[in-house]
């Protein structure tokens, strides 16, 4: 790896100050499992000048039930979330998503904040030494359009209508389905509004802004939530398609529903049409099937990823049925 300046921050204030000083020339490092891969491969046109380690800040690794809210510190490791009894009991989708992310070792290292802040996956974007200077790096085009796009967006391009990469996070759709909010050093926003699409960024975070905490409301009534991931291998892999859903059933009918897909577009894809399709309905094979159809009604697959549309349809159906 090429060198950089490195700071083990002691306090959030200090971390923010260092970031402020470097502007977009510094990166935050926590688990490091995404960032170090990018640095080793030198995929970015501008190599960071400094890394600010926030693992050295104490007290950011916790899971607390607080009144009607579950609070999770930004630096809580995915593995700890996956095995936490309260998370497993009341926030099934999150426990399942955290437990299916990456590999056991990476879950011991990777944090919840890191999992939602991770960069997009695209083999052109990630190719070492900036071999493909794509749109996202300020270049002229998306190489996936003419290239091999078996793992790319089925819901169109973004970043000036051109980048067809997908957002790989497993926990992001779960947090969105669970209606979580994210707290940063500057603001508190619904997780759904956290993701953004711009050159060299996937979130709304400013360069000197750091995620500090997640808050998830206790699910109303007896809402159940689940997460399903389709990947070629049962571990290590990123999702080809994943989906999380939280569904509240009252008097045998769906009272409310939140369904979110990921790995199908450049940011998590809330399947609003699927939600609409089941609200007021009984949950069964045929309504779930209809919801799956609705989820993909606006899909525009590329030449190699038509199968992802079918997968998205089925994974939505199965996730919804799992909540029944």
């Amino acid at each position: 790896m090429r060198s950089f300046e490195h700071f083990n921050a002691r306090t959030m204030e200090e971390a923010v100050a260092i970031l402020g000083r470097y502007g977009d020339r510094a990166r935050v490092i926590a688990g490091g499992t995404d960032l170090l891969g990018k640095l080793k491969d030198e995929i970015l046109p501008k190599y960071p000048e400094a890394l600010v380690n926030i693992k050295s800040i104490s007290g950011m690794d916790y899971i607390r039930e607080d009144n009607d809210v579950l609070k999770i510190g930004a630096l809580t490791r995915l593995e700890d979330i996956a095995v936490h009894p309260a998370v497993k009991q009341h926030f099934g989708a999150l426990a399942e998503a955290a437990g299916r992310a990456a590999s056991p070792h990476l879950r011991e290292m990777g944090t919840l904040a890191g999992n939602i802040c991770q960069d997009i996956r695209c083999w052109y974007y990630r190719y070492p030494n900036n071999r493909f200077p794509c749109l996202r790096k300020g270049g002229g085009r998306c190489y996936a359009i003419e290239g091999d796009n078996r793992y790319h967006s089925i819901f169109g391009g973004t970043v000036d209508d051109g980048c067809y990469a997908v957002h790989p996070s497993d926990t992001a759709p779960a947090l969105i389905a669970l209606d979580a909010v994210v707290r940063t050093t500057k603001r508190t926003i619904p997780l759904e509004d956290f993701f953004d699409v711009k050159v060299s960024a996937t979130t709304v975070l400013d360069p000197d802004e750091i995620v500090t905490e997640f808050e998830i409301p206790q699910s109303p009534g007896k809402a159940g939530s689940h997460f399903i991931k389709f990947a070629l291998r049962k571990t290590i892999d990123f999702a080809v398609v994943n989906c999380a859903a939280m569904i509240l059933i009252e008097e045998r009918k769906v009272a409310s529903a939140r369904v979110c897909l990921n790995a199908v577009a450049v940011k998590p894809y809330r399947a609003v049409k699927a939600e609409q399709a089941i609200i007021g309905q009984e949950l069964n094979e045929s309504t779930a099937e209809a919801a799956g159809e609705s989820a993909i009604s606006q899909a525009t697959p590329l030449k190699d990823n038509g199968y992802m549309v079918q997968l998205a349809k089925i994974i939505v159906k199965r996730t919804i049925l799992a909540c029944a």
Partner: peptide, 24 residues
């Protein structure tokens, strides 16, 4: 970080030494 061959136990956790900065 995709294979586990560089695993060490650090503070009780099995972690990947190739994806960890020593300075941290």
């Amino acid at each position: 970080g995709a294979c586990g061959s560089c695993t060490v136990i650090m503070d009780g956790r099995p972690i990947l030494s190739c994806m960890t900065l020593a300075i941290e």
